[in-house]
Amino acid sequence: MSDASFAALLELGAGAVLVCSVVTLWRRSLGAIVRVLSLQGAALGAVALVLGLHDHDGALVGVAVLVVAEKGVALPAMLMRLVARDPTSRELSPLVNVPASLVATGALTLLAFTVATPVVALVPTVAGRLAPLGLATMLIGLFAMAVRRKAVSQIVGLLLVDNGIALVAFLATGGFPLVVELGASLDVLLVVVVARVLGTRMHARFGVVDLDELRELHD
């Protein structure tokens, strides 16, 4: 792989991760949002694959396969089953409307570039310069969790946060040691399993997956 094509592929992959997170805020249909999340998982896996091939790092190639299987296929499939139970399956009334959310993603991306200055300064490579995109994805995920009102949207937001952090880790450090990656992936998988069970339980018992209904506990 030549240096120019390596840089181009890396930019394409990291850019796709960020664009997917913006699109999740643009779409209202929960089914579409989950499909975009699955695309993002695939893009994240592609970034890890390109890095692994370029650095001749076998472990990272293995991690890339794991990422695609987990974040591209398994997690979205689990969410899809939760979406299928929700009759409306649309994000009807987010706290912030869609145009304003898109403006916010622009602001959050700028913020990410500012905050990540020390990271870029420490790793002035092609990959290191793209690390702020991961931070931007994470911030957009946090924003999505704050303004969206469906249980599925909140889990999606959480996974955006997680994908963003994974992107930072791949680009800035070339990935964690394999053991840590495995432990972290297992934890994320279990969190989504638990959240899905809770979502199903809420649905079965109270007929809501809308978080505005959860307001009994407060001071």
């Binding site: 931070l135 994470m138 946090l142 969790m145 249980a151 909140q154 959480l158 946060v161 997680d162 952090i165 930072v168 972290a184 969190v191 638990v194 959240a195 809770l198 339980r201 809420m202 018992r205 109270f206 978080l211 959860l214 009994e216 506990l217």
Partner: peptide, 20 residues
């Protein structure tokens, strides 16, 4: 159920921040 939902969502965000 409401408490456990809030618990897992907020703590997962927190722990993700710690991961970064």
């Amino acid at each position: 159920v409401e408490a456990s939902w809030k618990y897992i969502v907020i703590c997962s965000v927190g722990i993700a921040t710690a991961f970064l």
